[in-house]
Design a protein around this nucleic acid. Structure first.
Length: 425
RNA sequence: GGAGAGGUGGCCGAGUGGUUGAAGGCGCAGCACUGGAAAUGCUGUAUAGGGGCAACUUUAUCGAGGGUUCGAAUCCCUCUCUCUCCGCCA
C-alpha cells in the first residue's frame, strides 16, 4: 500500500512513479478524497475539542454543586448534545470517505524501483547472466513424456480426483518430490533461515496484507463457508505471521524458509502449459522470506536471490538471471529478479523462482514496524522461491534424461533420493 | 457443536460513568554510584493525525464496529479472536 500522505501531498509524483509500470495511472479521484477527508478530520477534531472542554466543565459543576438539574446545567447539557449530533453527522461522512479511499488505495500497486529496467512487458526484461551450458540435442523428450514412460506421475487419472491441472505423483516421482523439498529446506536452514510450516488456509486479511486481495480475488480458491482461502504462496502466511507487530530491531533481519503447497486458479491461462508439471492448480514450493531494516533491503535482495540460485547450482541445472522490467513487475514488488531454468524440450528458459523486494508495501498493508532511529518505521519485506518443486522436477527430468530412458539424479540430491538414476516407479 | 470466562501500552497487569493516555511491574534509554561491570538509586519512555521554525499545543486510540450519555476502558448491542469444560475427531 502506498502512503496516503504522499497521495494527498504529492499526487503528481505518485502518478509518475506508478506510470513507470507502462500504463497511465490517474489518481485525481483518490487525491481529492484524501484532501476532503483531511478537511473533515480537522472540523471534527475542533468540535471534539470544544465538546470535551464542555464536558469537563459540567463534571466540575456537578461535583461542586451536587445538584444535577440546575437550569445552568440543563443548558450546558443541551449544548453538549448539540455538539454530539454535529460530530456524529460528520463522522458518518468521514466513514464514507475512509471506505472510498481504502477501496482505491488497496488497488494501487507498488512503485517500481528506479533501478528496474523500463519496459512494457516480459519482452523488455533484461537478462543479467546465464549459468551452466544449456543442453541442446536432437530427440529430446519433454518431461511429461519422460514422466509417462517412467510412470512417475499421472495427470489423466488426476482429473477423476479433481479436474485438469492437477497431478498425482507415483512411486519414485513422489519420492523425488519429497527429496527435493528436504534437500532445499536443509540447505536453506543451514544458511541461516528458520524453517516455518504455516497453515495452508489463510484469511482475507492475510491476503490483503501481502497484496493478493482485493484486486486478485480471481486468482485464489476460496472456501465458500468461511473467510478462508487456499494460500497461493507461502509469502502470504509468512507476511501475516508478523502482522500488527512492532519488531525488536535487534531481531532483524528475520529470515524464514517455508515449504508449502500452493493453490492457484490460473484464471485466463486456458490452453497454456496444459501438459506436465509447469502450470498446476496445486504445486509445492519452498519459499524464502526476509523482514529487514529498510536501509538494508537492496543488499538483502541480492542475498535472497543468490540463496535461491545456490539450489540450481547444486543441482547443476542451467539457468539465467533476469531483471524484470517495470511493466512486468508483480503488484507488490518494486524490483524482481527471476531465475529461469533451462528446459531443453522447449529450448527455452522457464521461470522457477521469483525474488522480489517489496520495500514497505506489504509492511504498511500488514502493519509491521520496527523502532529504527527512535521512530516506528515500516520495515521491508522480500520473498523468493527457493525453489518451485514441480518445475525443478521437470528440469531434472529433462536435463538428466538418458538414452536408455532413465534419468540421472544430480549428485547433491542422491543422498536424499537414494539412487543415482531414476528408472521406473 | 453446547456451556462458561476473557481480550487494556513493547510485554505483564490494575482500573465498572467525570478532567484516566490510563496505577504498578518488567523491558528499554539516560544519569548517579563503580577501576569496569553487576546490583542499587534517580529521571525518562505509546502510536497515529492536525497546527507551529521551535518550545509547545490539539484530536483520536483500552479486540473491531455500532449505540446510550454533556461525558465511556468502564453501561447496552453486534461481530471477532483467545482460553477452560463437555461432545466429536487424525
Amino acid at each position: 500500500m502506498l502512503d496516503q500522505k504522499l497521495i494527498r501531498e504529492n499526487p503528481t509524483s505518485v502518478e509518475e512513479n506508478l506510470s513507470l509500470r507502462g500504463k497511465v495511472y490517474n489518481i485525481s479521484h483518490i487525491h481529492e478524497l484524501t484532501v476532503k477527508k483531511k478537511d473533515i478530520d480537522i472540523e471534527i477534531s475542533n468540535l471534539q475539542s470544544e465538546s470535551k472542554k464542555l464536558s469537563k466543565l459540567i463534571g466540575q459543576e456537578i461535583s461542586k454543586s451536587k445538584n444535577n438539574d440546575s437550569p445552568d446545567l440543563i443548558y450546558l447539557k443541551k449544548k453538549g448534545n448539540e455538539y454530539r449530533i454535529k460530530i456524529s453527522e460528520l463522522e458518518e461522512k468521514q466513514r464514507i470517505f475512509d471506505k472510498e479511499v481504502d477501496e482505491e488505495i488497496y488497488n494501487l500497486p507498488n512503485f517500481p524501483s528506479k533501478d528496474a529496467p523500463i519496459g512494457k512487458d516480459e519482452r523488455d526484461n533484461l537478462q543479467i547472466k546465464t549459468w551452466g551450458d544449456p543442453l541442446i540435442k536432437e530427440n529430446i523428450k519433454s518431461h511429461w513424456e519422460i514422466g509417462e514412460s517412467l510412470n512417475i506421475f499421472d495427470s489423466v487419472k488426476s482429473t477423476k480426483i479433481s479436474k485438469s491441472r492437477f497431478i498425482t505423483l507415483i512411486g519414485n516421482g513422489a519420492r523425488l518430490e519429497r527429496a527435493l523439498i528436504n534437500f532445499m529446506l536443509d540447505l536453506h536452514t543451514k544458511n541461516g533461515y528458520l524453517e516455518l510450516m504455516p497453515p495452508a488456509l489463510v484469511n482475507s486479511e492475510s491476503l490483503t496484507g501481502s497484496g493478493q486481495l482485493p484486486k486478485f480475488s480471481n486468482e485464489s480458491f476460496k472456501c465458500s463457508n468461511d473467510d478462508l482461502w487456499l494460500s497461493p504462496t507461502a509469502e502470504v502466511p509468512l507476511t501475516a505471521f508478523h502482522r500488527n507487530e512492532l519488531i525488536d530491531p535487534k531481531q532483524l533481519p528475520i529470515k524464514y524458509v517455508a515449504y508449502s503447497p500452493c493453490f492457484r486458479r490460473e484464471a485466463g491461462s486456458y490452453g497454456r502449459d496444459t501438459k506436465g508439471l509447469i502450470r498446476l492448480h496445486q504445486f509445492n514450493k519452498v519459499e524464502l522470506y526476509w523482514f529487514c531494516d529498510p536501509s538494508k533491503s537492496l543488499e538483502a535482495h541480492k542475498k535472497i536471490t543468490s540463496d535461491a540460485e545456490s539450489i540450481l547450482q547444486k543441482l547443476n541445472l542451467p539457468y539465467r538471471l533476469v531483471d524484470i522490467c517495470t511493466g512486468d513487475l508483480g503488484f507488490s514488488s518494486s524490483r524482481t529478479f527471476d531465475l529461469e531454468v533451462w528446459l531443453p524440450s522447449s529450448k527455452s528458459y522457464r521461470e522457477i523462482s521469483s525474488c522480489s523486494n517489496c520495500l514497505d508495501f506489504q509492511a504498511r498493508r500488514s502493519s509491521i514496524r520496527s523502532k529504527i532511529d527512535k521512530k516506528n518505521t515500516y520495515i521491508h519485506t522480500l520473498n523468493g522461491s527457493g525453489l518451485a518443486i514441480g518445475r525443478t522436477m521437470a528440469a531434472i527430468l529433462e536435463n538428466g534424461q538418458q538414452k536408455d530412458g532413465s534419468v540421472k539424479i544430480p549428485d547433491a540430491l542422491v543422498p536424499y533420493f537414494g539412487s543415482n538414476f531414476l528408472k521406473t516407479a
